[in-house]
């Protein structure tokens, strides 16, 4: 009798589409794409069961570069679309991705409430402290003294601290990653996907065109010297006092996860059509 043959495990290339990214050569987002495909291969969820949802920005182009289902949505609204999708289709793995402008500026309010709702999805922010796509305007995470032609002398405005805000708002998993560490980032993303509830990964992803000085980040990033904690107060203290380049899972909690109250796991296209009948 022939022994049953197991299907070969999916490798990262199964998640990479044939489209070539149009990011600037050297952009950190290339490595993030590689990390996302490696993470999905670690989790071994087939591409047709994953949806990558994004907003608008250079980083938000990422769904097209994967073989997963994708939704390239409206600027700042990626989390709203991703939340709706996960609530309607809890069987799918939903990964929401975008930039710091998309997620913390125009999408800032969605970010707070997505953390608070704690729906089981993974949110990846490719943070380059700038609006890359629209040619270099300051974003909420831009340093107040970043001097450029569009904000001479700097904005003078204190920068937003996404990790501590996510933690305070109710996210169940909070991590910082660095694009220059693609394998470490893949590990963190895989953990984020596996962790129940809203998992937030802030990925430092240099914009080599508008913030070339961010190439220095590779000299600053370092693995977190401490293990993740499930104590939110301790995590908050660590995040508020670290140097901003501490890479790793900073909080992995067990806060109650939002579940859809409709009890319907799946709607068929016919169910949806029926809802729109007049």
């Amino acid at each position: 009798m022939n022994a049953p043959t197991l299907p070969a495990p999916l490798t990262f290339s199964a998640y990479k589409s044939a489209y070539k990214p149009i990011w600037c050569p050297g952009c950190g987002d290339y490595s993030v794409l590689s990390s996302v495909t490696k993470a999905l291969a670690k989790v071994q969820v087939p591409p047709h069961e994953v949806v990558v949802v994004s907003g608008i920005g250079c980083s938000s182009r990422i769904p097209a570069y994967t073989t997963c289902y994708g939704f390239h949505g409206v600027h700042g609204r990626a989390l709203a679309a991703g939340t709706g999708l996960k609530v309607a289709r809890p069987d799918l793995t939903v990964v929401v991705a975008g930039g710091d402008g998309d997620g913390y500026s125009i999408g800032g309010n969605h970010f707070l409430h997505a953390c608070r709702r704690n729906v089981d999805l993974t949110y990846l922010v490719m943070d380059n402290h700038v609006y890359g796509m629209t040619k270099g305007q300051a974003s909420p995470t831009t340093e107040p003294d970043w001097d450029n032609k569009l904000s001479p002398g700097g904005t003078g405005v204190r920068s937003f601290h996404p990790l501590v805000i996510a933690l305070a708002s109710g996210a169940n998993f909070v991590a910082r990653a660095f694009a220059g560490d693609p394998n470490g980032t893949a590990d963190i993303i895989a953990q984020a996907i596996r962790h129940p509830g809203f998992s937030f990964v802030e990925i430092l992803s240099p914009c080599v065109t508008f913030r070339p000085e961010q190439k220095e980040w590779k000299k600053l990033a370092h693995p977190s010297p401490v293990a993740p904690t499930d104590d939110a107060a301790r995590a908050a203290r660590r995040i508020m006092t670290d140097d901003g380049f501490n890479i790793g899972v900073l909080y992995a909690g067990d806060r109650p996860v939002y579940r859809s109250s409709t009890g319907k796991a799946k709607l068929t296209p016919a169910d949806l059509e029926a809802e729109f009948l007049l």
């Binding site: 107040p144 204190r158 000085e213 370092h222 140097d243 901003g244």
Partner: peptide
Amino acid sequence: MTAAARKTTKPARRP
């Protein structure tokens, strides 16, 4: 990131 580190575009280099 500490407030001091966030304020500057040139953070101190780690060894």
